[in-house]
């Protein structure tokens, strides 16, 4: 036995005089408490939104979702009557158009970054795509409003003048070119959700076991055939999850849209006319609202909350399911 010098014996200083069982108990319960806080927060958020919206929910019921009326208390004919349809329409259509643009490009980027890019290019390119996600929403809004919209004006004017009379397509380009429009919003939104789609898809494609790829090459497949067949098929549910995650981002995106969409409650099909979304309506009107109007806005927030929760849960389940299939581990 080697005698330890007394001053070196206690490796860990104990400041507390409580015994170890008590302090460990306190530690365990306090970390548990902090993590439970998240659970409470989400529940409280739902309940709080519901109770703040309840005057409107009782007054308008589900008809709120389909009505297009938005008249405040000083309106002489229909005082305090509200409906969410134009905003729900704006949210869904702008997100759908953004997906239409962002999915092919995001997926192509993901495939390039995971499979095709030379090794030395992968890290800097991935970093740039991540950077795209780090730029704040308000900066995209600023750029969209002061750079993109003026640049889009000639195209919009041309479309308004020429495409208007084409039979089917014309419906999408009716009305005058106003600059701030559904088209501008969809473009900015597509740029913003692209990094989410490509980053998550890239991870999912990377998670495909290399045996899949090797088997395809062994059968004489070209690189693209290997990607198209086994790789994308294995990664399919994860990629769908990534797309839905991007959709959830798009549905909740606020500032950039508020700055470029024009905030007019139009539910017509034209891409050239200004529109509004649930979140842009909240951003513009909430601060000055009170009484019935505020309760109606809370109802709008509750609708948005409900939509994003459902969409997010779907995405998480798909990605979780996919990673469990591929890796045999739970990576939610």
């Amino acid at each position: 036995m080697i005698a330890t010098p007394p001053e070196k014996r206690s490796l860990f200083k104990r400041q507390s005089t409580l015994d170890a069982r008590t302090t460990d108990g306190i530690f365990y319960w306090s970390t548990l408490g902090f993590s439970a806080l998240v659970l409470l927060l989400v529940a409280w958020l739902g309940i709080q939104l519901y109770s703040a919206a309840s005057p409107s929910i009782h007054k308008f019921g589900l008809g709120f979702l389909t009505s297009s009326m938005w008249s405040t208390s000083d309106d002489p004919i229909h005082p305090d009557t509200y409906g969410a349809w134009p905003y729900i329409y704006g949210t869904l259509v702008s997100s759908f158009l953004a997906l239409l643009l962002a999915v092919p490009i995001g997926l192509g980027t993901a495939i390039y970054l995971a499979e095709l890019a030379p090794k030395w290019l992968r890290t800097p390119l991935s970093f740039m795509v991540e950077l795209l996600a780090a730029v704040p929403s308000v900066v995209y809004g600023l750029w969209g409003r002061l750079v993109l919209i003026p640049a889009l004006m000639p195209l919009q004017t041309w479309l308004s003048d020429h495409a208007d009379s084409v039979p089917v397509v014309g419906r999408f380009f009716g009305g005058a070119a106003t600059g701030q429009s559904m088209m501008a919003a969809a473009l900015v939104l597509a740029i913003m959700i692209l990094p989410f789609i490509s980053a998550v898809s890239r991870e999912v494609i990377k998670a495909v076991p290399p045996t899949q790829r090797e088997a395809a090459f062994g059968l004489g497949a070209t690189h693209w055939e290997a990607i198209k067949g086994p790789i994308l098929r294995t990664a399919r549910s994860g990629i769908i999850g990534a797309i839905i995650l991007g959709l959830a981002r798009a549905l909740g995106e606020t500032m950039a849209i508020t700055m470029v969409i024009g905030n007019a409650p139009n539910a017509d099909f034209s891409l050239l006319s200004p529109a509004a979304t649930l979140s842009s309506k909240l951003a513009v009107e909430f601060a000055e609202a009170s009484g019935g109007q505020q309760s109606a806005l809370m109802y709008l927030a509750l609708v948005l909350f409900g939509i994003t929760i459902v969409v997010n849960a779907c995405a998480r389940l798909l990605i979780w399911n996919m990673s469990r299939q591929v890796k045999g581990s739970t990576r939610a």
Binding site: E253, T254, T308
Partner: peptide
């Protein structure tokens, strides 16, 4: 879920 809730909410 909390991560997915829109910031405006």
């Amino acid at each position: 879920v909390l991560n997915g809730i829109p910031s405006i909410i």
